[in-house]
Design a binder for these strands. Structure first.
Lengths: 335, 335
DNA sequence: GTGAAAGCGCTAACAG
DNA sequence: CTGTTAGCGCTTTCAC
């Protein structure tokens, strides 16, 4: 049994039904000039036939795809989900569809997705770049409008605006808070590619006269497993560490889990600050002190930047904020 | 200063460069038959010119859009994020882009998004339907391939396959577990539209000979605020309730928060079971007992259904599982 | 103010 | 095996 597929109503059908030319229909429907009478007829016919203009035809003609592409490392990560939500929400108000791609923070996969996007003639892309800034070169030359969100590419791509949270400020505040509690052996659990935050971290330590140990900066890949391994490894290897700062909420989750597993008490044995606020930070035991970032705003602003044609500001910096809850305490040597 | 936008390389350019006709290029690139020599020339020319076929042209010609549309209530909800991740992951293996829309569980917004999708000529859609089954009628008649994920529409739309988790089984197991612990006053915090689960809930109670009180089924809207209000309201209004089952993780979050705020201890004063397992359920204090659903699988399977052309099974049911942690205890009257 | 016609980039007939 | 041709549905000159 075959589903009775009805042929799509086209602009031509409407033109015939209204007794006018196709050009007129097009004009009326896109707000061009037409006599009141004609407009009336066209609108009536369109409504009667339940006509929906085909984005395909329009886009082909205009050599561009409506809609925006969005590339995030992991949609399962609450931070990126909120960022995506911001993008979606802004795009909706422009009536633009958004096509999403997950890069897994893998430069190769990222290029692959970029390929798909330009194949779709997407001419506006928001990305949390995972990889090689060079990968963006062909895209830019193809005239695609790119905005980076949450981080820049490395090496940096000039001419691409970005919407960022103030990592530096966040890290500095956190480190000051921790040193204020007496901590000296502070570790940083980072995701690969968070060199920005790592730099801010070591910079903050130096500024406060705390010696920097390279070994206390630990890198993990994007996956939960890798995060857990990194966290557990750190806690076991360095019992002298009394405070940990994590570069993201997946890493924070891993740190809490690892600490619990290894019977390291938070905040008694080690203080913990996590990058990015998530709903569960408050439900956690103990409730986690975090560096909150306006994930949703970042997405929204990035979408605005890419959707609003006209002059484009170079870069937008949004504030981070230290939200103190109960995962930090005064330094008490663990061993 | 104007960005030097280079005109897109078209199939015609490649044809000229290779000294063949456009049809030949098309054939070679889509795996049709051609002499080894010609194929060579075409491929070389394509590579040299960095040619990427335009999906726009192809789709217009073929009267369909590659790619699949995905409609979820809230991408910020970890369950739907994981579902989306499953879809994305499957789609990627088919090389299909996915366009995502957030419905906010609002039928009106859902219709709006459906409109956008058919305007894009999307001919394959995966949806967690929020509303009116009737809204899907025009879509189906337009020949769009729809698969529902995680729930069906109401009133149900025939001919639309669905990938579901076994709600019924999950609820029954949970209720049995709770009654086994001695609980009789069990409340169900539901999102609007979860009539399936509510029915399973009351059904399970009846089967166990526990009297059903309508007032113990509380409905909330999709937002966190509404969820919190519902949870807090229930806990205050009915101090005789000793166990709560929540229809989703946002509601679970709200219940934990409300209980904490109202100084109701879990599981001492009230036992709590949440629908859907999320990473933070384990980090919560106490760790939450949950009905786990294979969110990612649901998405993946739904994508498979919609992408694999050919015979389409009616419906797929995936198992739910009760994961016992520490949020339930024996009944102890609260007042 | 309105219609006819020319494509946008591609594929599928249809000839050769 | 390959080239020519006719559109897919739409917008946009360009005449009238």
């Amino acid at each position: 049994m075959q589903m009775p597929v009805q042929r799509r109503t086209t602009i031509k059908d409407v033109a015939e039904a209204a007794g006018v030319g196709v050009a007129t229909v097009s004009r009326v429907l896109s707000g061009g000039s037409a006599s009141a009478e004609t407009r009336e007829k066209v609108l009536a016919a369109a409504a009667r036939l339940d006509y929906h203009p085909s984005a395909l035809g329009r886009n082909l003609r205009q050599r561009r795809t409506g809609g925006v592409g969005l590339l995030v490392p992991d949609i399962t990560d609450s931070f990126y989900a909120r960022l995506a939500d911001g993008v979606l929400s802004c795009a909706r108000s422009y009536g633009e569809p958004v096509t999403i791609g997950v890069t897994g923070d893998d430069p190769e996969r990222e290029s692959e997705m970029i390929g798909t996007l330009i194949e779709q003639s997407m001419d506006r892309v928001i990305a949390v770049p995972s990889g090689d800034g060079d990968a963006w070169d062909p895209v830019l030359r193809a005239g695609v409008n790119v905005v980076f969100a949450s981080r820049r590419a490395e090496p940096d791509v000039p001419d691409v605006p970005a919407v960022l949270a103030d990592d530096r400020g966040g890290v500095r505040t956190a480190v000051e808070y921790l040193t204020g509690l007496g901590h000296r052996k502070i570790a940083f659990l980072a995701r690969r590619g968070q060199s920005q935050r790592v730099a801010a971290f070591t910079g903050a330590l130096k500024a406060l006269g705390v010696p920097v140990e390279d070994e206390l900066v630990v890198h993990a890949r994007a996956s939960r497993d890798s995060a857990y391994a990194a966290a557990a490894g750190l806690l076991q290897r360095r019992p002298d560490v009394t405070a940990v700062l994590t570069g993201g909420n997946i890493l924070g989750e891993a740190a809490v889990l690892a600490a619990r597993e290894l019977d390291v008490r938070v905040p008694r044995d080690v203080s913990l600050i996590m990058f990015d606020d998530v709903p569960w930070a408050e439900l956690c035991s103990p409730p986690l002190t975090v560096i909150a970032q306006p994930a949703q705003d970042i997405g929204y602003r990035a979408a605005e930047l890419v959707l609003r044609q006209g002059r484009r500001p170079r870069t937008v910096m949004l504030p981070s904020e230290l939200v103190v809850r109960a995962s930090c305490g005064p330094r008490r040597p663990r061993q």
